[in-house]
């Protein structure tokens, strides 16, 4: 599990190469693929933020759609109604969902197991109904469209209406978030999350305030899910109540399980595989979720640790026999 950590240089090299590859890729591909990859980056952020609470802390939340949807509304409404720039808007895409995550989490972490799953679903449903009916704020069933302002940082400026500009912007933000999350899960805080997942009772006996740490994980994940929602709205130029529906959280569940929960690279791999599969299947199959469902069921039954888990166990076996 800590093979990356033993070789920090190896991680830096691979991470750098992947980012470099993604930076030069737009010079060789069509706009169509750039849009696809931009959306892929957004879902990666959504999946790794979900993995922090599920894979690392052991809490199955089907409520992440709530934060994703609110993040989308935040940037859309602030830009549309109040003419706010993208920089403070994106910051609020993290902060406002964090406040919601604090509220939802405050109640939810009191519950465990199935009850936790259900209460997070219920909160997301309430948000979805409110998003659907509060038409004056959210645009109701039609949702809201907007034109994002350019992102400025000193002299540096990115035009987000441009597909390539948007691609680089989302890539940079998601890469940064990946590094931050990596830092978090390797820190002592991350170890506490894992200890709660492994044995909540023991973590409590050691003296950790388990509910508080669960809440911290929930708030961090909520903020990053919100950021993912904000980036998604920047990409689509649209926000709608559909993204608040609890089943949207299912995307993160699928990507994380297929790739490998409890590792950050797992959800990245899972998102890449599932979205590419859908992208390919959509040409000749109306019901792409059918294949997604089958893949999910097969993975859960045969390889609950996901693709990354499979590779790791194979590597271990190789080492043992050598």
């Amino acid at each position: 599990m800590s093979s990356w950590k033993e070789k920090p240089f190896g991680f830096t090299l691979i991470f750098g190469l992947v980012i470099l590859g993604l930076v030069i890729l737009p010079f060789f591909t069509e706009l169509y693929y750039q849009t696809f990859l931009t959306e892929l980056f957004v879902w990666i952020l959504f999946a790794i933020s979900f993995d922090l609470i599920f894979g690392y802390t052991g809490l199955l939340s089907f409520g992440q759609a709530l934060f994703f949807g609110i993040g989308g509304y935040t940037i859309t409404i602030l830009t549309r109604k109040y003419g706010l720039g993208t920089e403070p808007g994106l910051l609020l895409c993290i902060l406002i969902p964090m406040v919601f995550a604090w509220f939802v989490g405050y109640f939810s972490v009191k519950l465990t197991g199935i009850h936790f799953v259900i209460i997070t679903i219920i909160f997301a449903i309430i948000a979805n109904i409110i998003g659907d009916t509060w038409t004056s704020l959210t645009g109701g069933k039609d949702g809201l469209t907007f034109s994002p302002r350019p992102f400025r940082l000193g002299f540096f400026q990115i035009n987000l209406m441009d597909i390539k500009g948007n691609y680089y912007f989302v890539l940079a933000v998601v890469a940064l978030c990946y590094l931050i999350l990596r830092r978090i899960v390797q820190s002592p805080l991350g170890k506490i999350f894992v200890s709660i997942r492994e044995n909540e009772e023991r973590a409590r006996l050691i003296g950790y305030h388990v509910q508080r740490y669960k809440l911290i994980a929930f708030i961090i994940a909520g903020g990053l899910s919100g950021l993912a929602g904000g980036l998604y709205s920047l990409t689509l130029k649209y926000a709608g109540a559909g993204y608040l529906h609890w089943s949207v959280s299912g995307h993160a569940v699928v990507y994380t399980i297929v790739g490998g929960m409890g590792t950050l690279i797992g959800p990245v791999v899972g998102t890449g595989i599932i979205l590419s599969l859908e992208h390919y299947l959509v040409n000749f199959l109306q019901a792409t979720d059918l294949v997604v469902g089958i893949v999910l069921v097969v993975m859960v039954l045969l390889a609950p640790k996901g693709i990354v888990g499979l590779i790791q166990s194979r590597r271990k076996k190789g080492k043992a026999s050598a």
Binding site: I114, L290, V297
Partner: peptide, 22 residues
């Protein structure tokens, strides 16, 4: 494993829904 079973039945839900859609 209750949590894994929830995820598995979620996948089954997708499969049934999409089969009916088809």
């Amino acid at each position: 494993k209750p949590i894994i079973t929830i995820i598995c039945t979620f996948g089954i839900m997708l499969v049934i829904q999409e089969l009916v859609l088809m």
